[in-house]
């Protein structure tokens, strides 16, 4: 998909490693100090700042430290607020890195959800099998990294239930997602097991429409919108940092609410 913001994907860990290595060099430190003066700041406004490689790396390093702080702050028992049906935002906004007419079409009869990585049962799931699992729903606030929010109603399978069903290694660090729209993201295991994390198959009581992520999206009211992948085709459990479409470009990885 053409996207003006898309840049070269970076391997997150390599970036941090490189940033740490460079930060150890005294000259780099001096440069950072100088570049952080008020005068330097005024020169670094606007687009110039994203071209300043070392500043960008330092900021990326802070962002990864913020991942750790957020993981520490995250209370796995704390629930996001829920709302009455009357507060559902209608129409619920569409948002993606492409326009609504570029939403992928997934054939329900052919579809199989792949499950891989550190799981005992790697069989691919048909939609009917997922619909046969216990279903639950929630009316929660979706918060976009852009700042806006909207209240929606999602239904589906509790993700913790699903992970236990496939015999996932629940001590693994990450759960990653590959999507039919070439999107990808990954989350931490505590959030994956949060009681409100839902493998959503429906929206507002109807089968999930294509624009909201057919055949399924991961709905987490404890994370920002870009962490909630749509059109999921494959789920994998891993200890290797998987990054993600926006995360690799500089959006914070944890992205938690």
């Amino acid at each position: 998909m053409p996207n003006p913001y898309r840049r070269i994907a970076l391997d997150g860990e390599a970036v941090v490693k490189e940033a740490l290595r460079r930060l150890d060099q005294p000259a780099r430190r001096a440069f950072l100090r100088r570049s952080l003066t008020l005068g330097g700041l005024s020169l670094l406004t606007g687009c110039a700042i994203v071209d300043e490689e070392s500043v960008e790396r330092a900021l990326m390093k802070v962002s990864r430290l913020n991942d750790k702080v957020q993981a520490w702050l995250f209370d796995p028992t704390l629930l996001a607020p829920t709302y009455p049906e009357s507060m559902i935002t209608r129409p619920f906004p569409f948002n993606a890195y492409y326009k609504v007419d570029e939403v992928p079409e997934v054939d329900a009869s052919e579809f199989r959800l792949e499950v891989g990585g550190l799981v005992a049962d790697r069989h691919a799931w048909a939609l009917e099998e997922l619909r046969a699992l216990p279903q639950t729903d929630q009316i929660t606030r979706h918060i976009c990294v852009e700042g806006w929010s909207a209240i929606g109603k999602w239904g589906g399978v509790n993700f913790g239930t699903f992970l236990r069903r496939v015999g996932a290694d629940l001590s693994a660090r990450y759960v990653g997602f590959q999507c039919a729209d070439d999107y990808s993201t990954s989350i931490d295991m505590p959030t994956a097991l949060h009681p409100q994390t839902l493998l959503a198959l429906s929206f507002d009581g109807e089968p999930l429409p294509p624009r909201y992520g057919f055949p399924m999206k991961l709905r987490m009211p404890t994370k920002l919108g870009y962490k909630n992948p749509k059109h999921i085709e494959a789920i994998f459990v891993t200890n290797t940092y998987p990054g993600g479409y926006w995360e690799d470009q500089g959006y914070n990885w944890f992205g938690g609410s």
């Binding site: 700041l41 406004t45 700042i49 994203v50 802070v62 990294v145």
Partner: peptide, 22 residues
């Protein structure tokens, strides 16, 4: 006006914001 903002784009601005907050 973008000319008086810092970060270049949303992700950059967020990185500055969540670094300077400390």
């Amino acid at each position: 006006p973008k000319s008086v903002t810092l970060g270049g784009w949303l992700a950059g601005a967020l990185q500055w914001h969540f670094a300077a907050m400390w």
